[in-house]
Computed example of a mutant assay.
Amino acid sequence: MKDPRETNRQSKFFHHLSAISESVSGLSWVAVAPAPSPYVKEMGDSAMFYSNRVLKDYREVDKIHVEWVQNWSNVFKDLQEYVRKYHTTGLAWNTRGGNAMGNLKAAPPNCGVPPPPPPGIPPPPPMVKLDVKAAAADDGRNDLFASINKGADITTGLKKVSDDMKTHKNPSLREGPKPFVKQSSPAGRNSPARDPFSGTPRVVLEGKKWFVEYQKDNKNVKIDAKMAQTVYIFRCQNTVVQVKGKLTSVTLDSCKKSSVVFDNLVSGAEVVNCQSCQVQVMGLMPTISIEKTDGCQVFLSKESLNTEIVTAKSSEMNIVVPKPDGEFAELAIPEQFRTKLNGLSLTTTCTETC
Rank of each mutant, 00 (worst) to 15 (best):
residue 178 K to R: 12
residue 178 K to H: 11
residue 178 K to V: 07
residue 180 F to C: 03
residue 181 V to E: 11
residue 183 Q to M: 12
residue 185 S to I: 13
residue 186 P to T: 11
residue 186 P to W: 12
residue 187 A to S: 13
residue 189 R to F: 11
residue 189 R to A: 12
residue 190 N to C: 12
residue 191 S to I: 15
residue 191 S to W: 14
residue 192 P to N: 09
residue 192 P to F: 06
residue 192 P to Y: 07
residue 192 P to D: 10
residue 193 A to V: 14
residue 193 A to T: 13
residue 193 A to L: 15
residue 196 P to G: 01
residue 196 P to A: 01
residue 197 F to G: 06
residue 197 F to Y: 15
residue 197 F to D: 09
residue 199 G to T: 03
residue 199 G to P: 07
residue 199 G to S: 07
residue 200 T to F: 11
residue 200 T to H: 12
residue 200 T to R: 14
residue 202 R to I: 12
residue 202 R to A: 14
residue 203 V to H: 00
residue 203 V to Q: 02
residue 205 L to Y: 07
residue 206 E to G: 04
residue 206 E to S: 13
residue 206 E to N: 14
residue 207 G to F: 02
residue 208 K to F: 05
residue 208 K to I: 04
residue 209 K to A: 12
residue 210 W to K: 03
residue 210 W to Y: 08
residue 211 F to G: 06
residue 211 F to A: 09
residue 211 F to I: 11
residue 213 E to D: 13
residue 213 E to Q: 12
residue 213 E to S: 11
residue 214 Y to T: 00
residue 215 Q to T: 00
residue 215 Q to V: 02
residue 218 N to A: 01
residue 219 K to H: 06
residue 220 N to Y: 04
residue 221 V to N: 01
residue 222 K to Y: 09
residue 224 D to C: 07
residue 224 D to V: 10
residue 224 D to W: 09
residue 224 D to F: 10
residue 226 K to Q: 11
residue 226 K to C: 03
residue 227 M to H: 11
residue 227 M to S: 12
residue 227 M to E: 14
residue 227 M to W: 05
residue 230 T to A: 14
residue 230 T to S: 15
residue 231 V to I: 11
residue 233 I to M: 06
residue 234 F to R: 10
residue 234 F to T: 10
residue 234 F to G: 03
residue 236 C to Y: 02
residue 238 N to D: 00
residue 239 T to G: 00
residue 240 V to M: 02
residue 241 V to T: 13
residue 242 Q to W: 06
residue 244 K to A: 14
residue 244 K to E: 13
residue 244 K to S: 14
residue 245 G to N: 09
residue 246 K to S: 13
residue 247 L to Q: 07
residue 247 L to N: 09
residue 247 L to M: 11
residue 247 L to K: 03
residue 247 L to E: 03
residue 247 L to S: 08
residue 248 T to S: 15
residue 249 S to E: 08
residue 250 V to N: 07
residue 250 V to W: 05
residue 250 V to K: 05
residue 250 V to H: 06
residue 250 V to I: 13
residue 252 L to M: 12
residue 252 L to P: 03
residue 253 D to K: 10
residue 256 K to T: 04
residue 256 K to D: 03
residue 256 K to M: 05
residue 257 K to V: 00
residue 258 S to K: 02
residue 258 S to V: 01
residue 259 S to L: 00
residue 259 S to C: 03
residue 259 S to I: 02
residue 261 V to D: 01
residue 262 F to T: 01
residue 262 F to L: 02
residue 263 D to H: 06
residue 263 D to K: 07
residue 265 L to T: 04
residue 265 L to H: 03
residue 265 L to C: 02
residue 266 V to S: 08
residue 266 V to P: 01
residue 266 V to N: 09
residue 266 V to R: 11
residue 266 V to G: 01
residue 268 G to P: 06
residue 268 G to S: 08
residue 269 A to K: 06
residue 269 A to E: 07
residue 272 V to Q: 04
residue 272 V to E: 07
residue 273 N to E: 10
residue 273 N to K: 10
residue 274 C to A: 05
residue 275 Q to D: 05
residue 275 Q to R: 08
residue 275 Q to S: 08
residue 276 S to N: 14
residue 278 Q to F: 02
residue 278 Q to L: 08
residue 279 V to N: 00
residue 281 V to C: 10
residue 281 V to R: 05
residue 282 M to R: 15
residue 282 M to L: 15
residue 285 M to W: 07
residue 286 P to N: 09
residue 288 I to L: 13
residue 288 I to C: 10
residue 289 S to T: 13
residue 290 I to Q: 08
residue 291 E to L: 13
residue 291 E to P: 04
residue 291 E to W: 09
residue 292 K to R: 14
residue 292 K to T: 13
residue 292 K to S: 15
